[in-house]
Amino acid sequence: MTRERSGARVLAVSVGAVGDLPWRDRAIRSAIAKKPVAGPVPVTALGLAGDEQGDRSRHGGPDKALCVFPVEHYRHYERLLERRLDRPAFGENLTTTGLNEGETRIGDVLRVGEAVLQVSLPRNPCYRLGARYGVRELPVWFERSGRTGFYLRVLSEGEVQAGDAIELLDRPRPHATIAEANRVMHHDRHDHAAVEALLVPELGASWRRTFERRLAGQIDDPASRRYGPE
C-alpha cells in the first residue's frame, strides 16, 4: 500500500525548551514556542530529540510523541488573529503540506524520513494556545473549524528532517478520520454510534477514556482545557 500522500511532505521540524508563558496575572511553564531545526533530528518513542513539554500530564508521551500541523491552515488563523504567523506558530513538531484532517485516519501508518509513525488522535486545543497569542477564544476557534492538527506515535525510530516525503504505508481504519473524531469530540457529543465506531485500538488513550465515559453517560466539561484552571 506504500504511496506518497499526494506530494505530502515535511516543511519544518521543530523543537522547544520549557520556558515561562504569560497567562492572566502569572506565568505558566510551556514549550509551545518551538523553533525549526536544520538537518536530521532523531525521533525516539517519546518524540524529537531536544523537545520538551511543560505539562507532561497532558502533553507528550507515546501517544503524543509528535504533533503535526498542516501549513494549509495558517492563512485561516492569520485572518482570525490579524497577524502573520511564522512556523511553527502553534507548537507543532512537524509543519506539513499535503495532509488534512478530512483525509488523515486514526491508525494511518506513515513513513517520514527514517521513522515509521502512526496517527493516534487529534490535537485537543488547550488554553496555552490562547495564552501564546493573548486570545482567550483561540482554542474554541480550533474546535469550531476542525483545523486542529493531530498526533503521531512512533513505531520505528529514525531521523526526520525538513523536506522529507510522507508515505502512507497502511490504513487499517478507513472510516476513522481525524475530522470525524473532532466532530464527535467537540460538536456531536451524544452521537454514541459514532463514538463506538471511533473506539479503534489505535486511538490514543486520553480520547479513548473520554469516549468510554461518554458511552457510560458522563459528559466532560471542556472549560478548564479551553480557558485554564481558575
Score class of each variant (00 low, 15 high):
Thr177Lys: 05
His190Gly: 11
His73Met: 05
Asp164Thr: 05
Arg87Leu: 15
Leu117Pro: 00
Arg123Ile: 03
Thr96Phe: 07
Thr97Trp: 08
Arg79Asp: 10
Ala205Arg: 06
Val140Pro: 03
Arg105Ala: 12
Arg26Asp: 14
Ala193Met: 02
Ala65Ile: 03
Ser57Cys: 02
Ser120Ala: 11
Leu199Met: 10
Leu155Pro: 11
Asp108Ala: 11
Ala216Glu: 15
Trp141Arg: 07
Asn124Ser: 09
Asn100Asp: 15
Thr104Lys: 10
Glu143Val: 00
Gln53His: 15
Gly91Asn: 09
Arg147Thr: 08
Arg153Ser: 14
Thr104Ile: 15
Val140Arg: 15
Leu121Cys: 05
Arg144Asn: 12
Ala27Gln: 09
Val184His: 08
Leu85Ser: 08
Glu196Ile: 01
His76Ile: 03
Arg132Leu: 14
Val68Ile: 14
Ala131Tyr: 01
Ala33Met: 10
Pro70Trp: 02
Gly61Leu: 09
Leu99Glu: 04
Asp20Gln: 14
Pro201Asn: 03
Thr95Asn: 07
Ile178Met: 12
Ala27Ser: 13
Arg87Cys: 13
Ala165Pro: 06
His192Trp: 08
Asp25Trp: 07
Val184Ser: 01
Thr210Phe: 01
Pro22Asn: 10
Pro42Trp: 07
Pro174Asn: 09
Val160Ser: 05
Val18Ser: 11
Ala131Pro: 07
Phe150Trp: 15
Leu168Lys: 09
Gly107Asp: 11
Glu52Gln: 15
Asp221Gly: 11
Glu101Arg: 10
Asp164Met: 05
Asp220Pro: 00
Arg75Gln: 14
Cys126Ala: 11
Asp220Ala: 14
Asp55Pro: 01
Pro201Ala: 08
Leu155Lys: 07
Asn124Arg: 05
Asp188Ser: 07
Gly61Thr: 08
Arg58Lys: 14
Leu199Trp: 04
Thr96Gln: 06
Thr148Pro: 01
Cys67Ser: 04
Gly61Pro: 06
Asp63Lys: 12
Gly16Phe: 00
Arg56Pro: 11
Met1Leu: 08
Pro229Leu: 07
Arg83Val: 02
Ala179His: 09
Glu92Tyr: 01
Glu137Met: 10
Val116Trp: 03
